[in-house]
């Protein structure tokens, strides 16, 4: 179980990385906590790995214009301990303890989690729930893609082969921001069987503009739009019932589609309580 042969280059700067990614079969290496495992298993055979870990300026966490910007190379452990994230992006703060284990969190990056886009991962769902966006640098320059448009299909995103994800941005939490997070994983740190990241605004009884984003139930993070509408209308029961239409999970080795849909309903009830809590 050794990786196939590939070349390695350490990018000095973003432009350099983008240039190196022009090599046919090149792949970007960030934290490597998913990529190197797939290389070891020979599930992927890039010609060149472009290591962006040495590029400066991608590990910051900063509030700008009412948005919290998190650099692509921010490690999970840094995010977990970040006062800025706890204050301005409490949903991400709640998700962090569920991600991987100590050694993985020391090395894995937030940008890598988003770019790898594992459908059972926490952060892509959080990004969509928060209505965040992804900052991308590519051969044509920089662009911003809304999280809703970023996750295309199983392990497929809006990133092109020469693109580098440089940061994610989420609206900073305000006094009326409500978030909820819950996941069911068989063991601590495992990818979720089913998980739910949710955000809303407090508005009297029912949460306003709730965004309910499931993970582990599809090929991408899945917004449960009918359930969102029902929840906004004040009916949790209808919201749970609507999940049967919103979600179309596939059977996998952990659970059948029916079990996942049931669990999604349980999570919705639990997360709805969190959304109500001040």
């Amino acid at each position: 179980m050794k990786p196939p042969a590939f070349a390695y280059a350490k990018a000095r700067a973003l432009d350099h990385a983008i240039e190196l990614l022009g090599v046919d079969g090149a792949r970007l290496l960030a934290g490597g906590q998913s990529l190197i495992a797939t290389l070891n298993m020979r599930l992927s055979s890039p010609s060149l790995l472009v290591d962006i870990n040495g590029i400066g300026g991608l590990e910051g966490i900063a509030l700008r214009d009412g948005r919290l910007e998190i650099g692509a190379l921010v490690r999970h452990v840094q995010a977990e301990r970040s006062a800025e994230i706890a204050r301005h992006a409490p949903l991400i703060a709640r998700a962090m303890p569920h991600i991987g284990h100590a050694a993985i969190r020391n090395r894995g990056t937030l940008g890598g989690s988003i770019a790898f886009a594992d459908p059972a991962a926490e952060l892509p769902a959080c990004l969509v729930a928060l209505g965040g966006e992804v900052e991308i640098a590519g051969p044509e320059g920089r662009r911003t893609v809304a999280a809703d448009d970023f996750f295309k299909d199983l392990f497929e995103t809006a990133l092109g082969p020469r693109d580098v994800l440089t940061a994610i941005r989420v609206p900073a939490a305000t006094a009326d921001t409500r978030v909820g997070f819950a996941e069911l994983a068989r063991r601590h740190g495992d990818y979720a069987m089913v998980g739910l990241a949710a955000a809303a605004r407090a508005d009297g009884k029912a949460p306003k503009d709730p965004r309910l984003v499931y993970f582990g139930v599809g090929t991408t993070p899945v917004r449960a739009r009918k359930a969102e509408a029902a929840l906004a209308g004040g009916s949790l029961d209808q919201a749970v019932a609507a999940l049967a239409q919103d979600l179309a999970p596939q059977d996998d080795v952990q659970a059948t589609a029916a079990v996942k849909t049931h669990l999604a309903g349980v999570l919705l009830r639990r997360v709805a309580q969190q959304l109500e809590a001040a």
Binding site: L29, G32, I36, A37, L49, D51, A102, A103, R107
Partner: peptide, 11 residues
């Protein structure tokens, strides 16, 4: 601490 199997020596 890191996983020695999830880092390359080159890194």
């Amino acid at each position: 601490v890191v996983r020695g199997c999830l880092m390359l020596a080159a890194q």
